[in-house]
Design a protein around this nucleic acid. Structure first.
Ligand SMILES: [Mn+2]
Ligand SMILES: [Mn+2]
Ligand SMILES: [Mn+2]
Ligand SMILES: [Mn+2]
Lengths: 231, 231
DNA sequence: TAAAAAGATTAGGCATGACTAAATTTATTG
DNA sequence: CAATAAATTTAGTCATGCCTAATCTTTTTA
């Protein structure tokens, strides 16, 4: 005999944005091959380990994770699917902000952290369409499609691995530190920039590239963090 | 002697989305010349009057409203400013969804109700720019600018008031009921549609218009709810 | 203008999601 | 392999918002 709930249901269909952030944090550790321990999650989410234990209990009851005390959490199929959907939203919004609104790479993460919780599949699918179904976000991270499939990064190469004569386009970065992204901005290196590797200096690993008729030299440290797609 | 807060501050700069919805509801009653009573607010927000009394206490402590028990609430300058900022966000997101993502007028409200709570002035100002600084949302409601100024509707006229020979463009609607918006969709009446008033039938108040080379007749009931800008 | 009706507030709870401190389990190390 | 150290869980609170029921106030109406 099921009675009408007394409180506004945090319905089985909607996971609160707090819980969503936990799922995402667990997924991100999982993708790195790391264990989703309470301390690791608490570090990621800026909470206390005890709070994570509490949330693990909640998510476990919702069948979004399998949780064994002292052994960490693993996403269930449903939990994983929800986490991937969040990553999709996060990365599409980041792409939107950079491509359409003119934000820099280093400015979009925090806001995407909020936008990803807007609950509308229609919205995100149309946004995807509007953006031309991009495969990678401004940081070079793959954007899951509407079915949850994640393209791997096979199609992207680290610029330091490019050989002389290769034409390529900037697609992402390995580090998203503020200082790095601002440096890229200073040098005019932005998403979609096409360039050709003209010379590789073995002395310090820097490379000379031609781009839009101009020639410049990128340091080894820089190109090790730059992702490109070979044209 | 100020001590570090024990809990994550619901900082003085950020008003939670629940509180924001209350501020917006109070503003909307105020703009209609109605009193912000607990029952009126509770009806708007689908809560109980007792809950509104509780929230009035909270908002009053935050100096966002002036609240006199049994007499209702009035927005302070700060409360009003925050409410207007929310309306701005809500209407810009609605405009974005209709103009850029191809949603219909009747599909955007619920999602905008979520998007309006994304907290970033930068984001909304750039979105405004991206949309070309629109003055009205898809429902014909004015969009406050970044300073909080709200254009009045003087520049829009109800289509039933147009005289024969006038050229105009559809800019909004007075009713946002699903059935009405779907009817507009059926007839191909959409935002931005340019038309000329060819004839007004005094018999039933319907009007004949020419638009994009085609001629059609719009009913009195229809044109009384349609807003246009004279070209 | 007094009683009834309508509207608003208070009182007492509950769900969610944090936090601290104390207790417990697991991992490390001499 | 026992004793520390580190990680995790439990216990006890707290802030936010919402709910129902009971108790005022204010407004209507006879
Ligand atoms: Mn988030
Ligand atoms: Mn990213
Ligand atoms: Mn809202
Ligand atoms: Mn609107």
């Amino acid at each position: 005999m099921s009675s009408t709930p007394k409180y506004k249901s945090s319905s089985s269909l909607t996971t609160s944005s707090n819980r969503q952030d936990y799922l995402k944090a667990i997924l991100s550790l999982d993708l790195k091959g790391a264990k989703a321990s309470t301390s690791a999650i608490s570090a990621k989410l800026n909470t206390q380990p005890a709070s994570v234990t509490g949330m693990f209990g909640v998510l476990s009851n919702l069948n979004l994770i399998n949780y064994i005390p002292y052994k960490g959490a693993k996403l269930t199929d449903e939990g994983r699917s929800q986490a991937i959907s969040l990553v999709r939203k996060h990365r599409l919004w980041e792409t939107f902000m950079v491509e359409k609104l003119g934000f820099r790479w280093d400015e979009v993460h925090e806001v995407a952290e909020q936008l990803e919780h807007v609950n509308s599949e229609q919205l995100i699918d149309r946004l995807d369409d509007f953006l031309g179904f991009p495969n990678f976000d401004p940081h070079g991270d793959p954007i899951p499609d509407s079915l949850g499939n994640i393209a791997d990064r096979r199609s992207l190469v680290v610029v330091s691995d490019l050989e002389v004569g290769k034409m390529a386009s900037i697609r992402g970065v390995l580090s998203s530190s503020d200082s790095f992204l601002k440096h890229l901005d200073d040098l005019g290196i932005r998403l979609g920039l096409e360039f050709e590797v003209v010379k590789v200096y073995t002395y310090d690993g820097s490379i000379q590239v031609d781009s839009a008729g101009e020639s410049m030299i990128w340091s080894r440290k820089l190109v090790e963090q730059l992702l490109a797609e070979v044209n």
